[in-house]
Amino acid sequence: MMLSKKIALTLFSCSLLFSSALHAQSVGVVKTLVGNVQLIRAGEPVKVVLGDEIHIADKLQTDSDSSVGILFSDDTRLGAGPNTLFSIDVYQFDNVTQRGLADLSVENGTLALVGGKLTAKNLDAIKVHTPTTMLAASCSTLSVKVNQLIKEAP
């Protein structure tokens, strides 16, 4: 009886830990979707559907004629155009202090961003990395276009 109680307690605390870890990872939700969009999580590509949760370190790839829109927990909104490859590298948002920061990387394509509570308190909260530079513009809205790097023939 005592043992089963202990096991139950351990299982309960484990599930709590697990759920809180999962909860902490979810930073946004897919709100708009056109065409074919892949989510690459831990190296595994998965087809994105509306309502999918986005975690830190997720990479998203849109096909041609495709686009995806994400609403982050702080109400920051992001739209990605066709042939876009981007990732969410860092995302922290404290609901109580309404502060945090976000780092995004665009390898290719187009991104539009409208800052939410993150940029309401700190205009420098969101940074966008591109293959050649890092945008740390003090603003709440921005759009980025990254052209495919032309590789020189050896």
Binding site: V34, S67, G69, D75, G79, G81, T110, S143, K145
Partner: peptide, 16 residues
Amino acid sequence: PDPVMAPAMAALPAEP
């Protein structure tokens, strides 16, 4: 407005 950016702008979710 850059027409190349139009799909990305259109993909922005509505404001909560």
